[in-house]
Amino acid sequence: MPDRELRFRVFRHNPFDPESTPRMVQFQLTETPRMTLFTALTRIREELEPSLQFDIVCRAAVCGSCAILVNGKPRLACRTRIETLPNDITLMPLPFFKLVADLSVDTGQWFRDMGTRVQSWINAREPFDPNAEEARMSNETAAEIYELDRCIECGCCVAACGAAQMNPEYLGAAGMLRIARFLADPRDGRPEAAVFDVVSTEEGIFGCIGLAACEDYCPKDLPLTSRLAYLRRKTALLALRKSSQVEESTVADGYA
């Protein structure tokens, strides 16, 4: 449908500018063939409003920079084809994350913080031996880890999550997926108790209220709900084992 007149309503606000107030601003563009929101936003900045802030890096759906709300739904701007949208397009920054300015939010800081909280690295390992052959792994295991490692930290899952909006400490589907990624990795030696401490809390798996919007909006089609369910079962099992250990020890105490 090239040649359509497109009306963009774009959120604008710069919290670092004392004179700025949140507002919606209109821009008009004529559609060109094969236009994406990346091309449209770039044209708005180049032709109409050079101060407009938004985040784009790879423009190929691999870096996770460009998630925004498009007519109310979290999406990657670079992978949104204008053809699929009506003439009126409302663009808002992702909710939940700290606003940088206009359409730009601080997903980067949130994900770094999440990474530290869930210890997003290979834990408890032997020192690296540069002269040794690599540890072997089946290709299926590698593929399974890769599948869980594909998250691009765009923030769509958290922005779409009802629970996260009420509980800012919630680690979100992305955080839970990260834990599942390390649980699936035989190179990671973290003790189960450490996993349990992070997961079995309101900030972890018990924060999830099961709306499954995370998976609906994940641009990478990651298996979020099945991993959440897996972690829920796993924590339940761990909890059971823990409580039976406690019982055993009380029983033992009783006999002493």
């Binding site: 690295w121 290979i122 040794a132 690599e134 890769y146």
Partner: peptide, 13 residues
């Protein structure tokens, strides 16, 4: 190999 040790899920033979 060091990146494998850090967790890269390299495809395997």
């Amino acid at each position: 190999r060091e990146t494998a040790y850090w967790g890269v899920p390299w495809s395997r033979v």
